[in-house]
Amino acid sequence: MAFNRKQAYIKMIQKGIMAMLPLNLAVLPWGILCGSLAIQRDFTVLEAILMPMLVFAGSVQLVVIELINDNVPLATILFTTFIISSRHLLYGLALRDKLKDLPFKWRGSLGFLLTDELFALSGKKRAYQGKLKLVYALAAGGSFYLCWLLWNIIGIVAGSYLPDLTSIGLDFAIAVTFIALVIPSVTNLAMLVTVVVAGLLSVLFKLLNWELGLVIASLIAMYSGYLTAKKQNALNIVNNKKAKIKL
């Protein structure tokens, strides 16, 4: 019995790692970029390692490294970080009902690991339900953490030998992974509306240089999708009633 349980956990760990593997690989150039940039902008090796180890957020790392290098005031750096991170508030909110009653060791660890990538894998209805699914999520998120750290370290070690990598299109791998995760979930009109609105508004807000653009575009897109689903539901109910009356 105990042996079977152990086997089931091992199986879940493998599944979690496999599910995260494409994302782990897709952020390889991004991680190398973050690590090498820190070194090129005069971070010590310790500081450069602590960025992925503790802060553990690609977009924050990239932006903040430049800000620290430009001697921007601390308050501005912290505020910018909060704005960039604010989308994670949404992730926590979306997963609240599934995670809030768990012991702190699960909430704390999964919370720490709750990146865009782990959230992207959390969409299934039964995600985080039961210990096996939690082990799965921990393995997925944990493998992402370790890879992120490793890619950063490669960047830190190679940093002084690499040219400035910021301008050669490394971000495409991230875009493609998100495309691969989002497009298959567009199975109905409400999802289509969500994705189209998010795409249009995010580009618009980015061109306007709105710091909060990402979150605002997402919120409006979510509301558009929600309204579409509600309208469709209402229409379906009306149609069903009509059909019944005809019968």
Partner: peptide, 28 residues
């Protein structure tokens, strides 16, 4: 709210990837 939040993953991920594709050096 739960229903509303069910749209968060496609919304946020799309809002991240679309600008990467269309915006280069602050122009469309």
């Amino acid at each position: 709210i739960t229903h509303f939040l069910s749209f968060s993953a496609p919304a946020v991920l799309t809002a991240i990837w679309v600008p990467i594709i269309f915006i280069k050096d602050n122009s469309f």
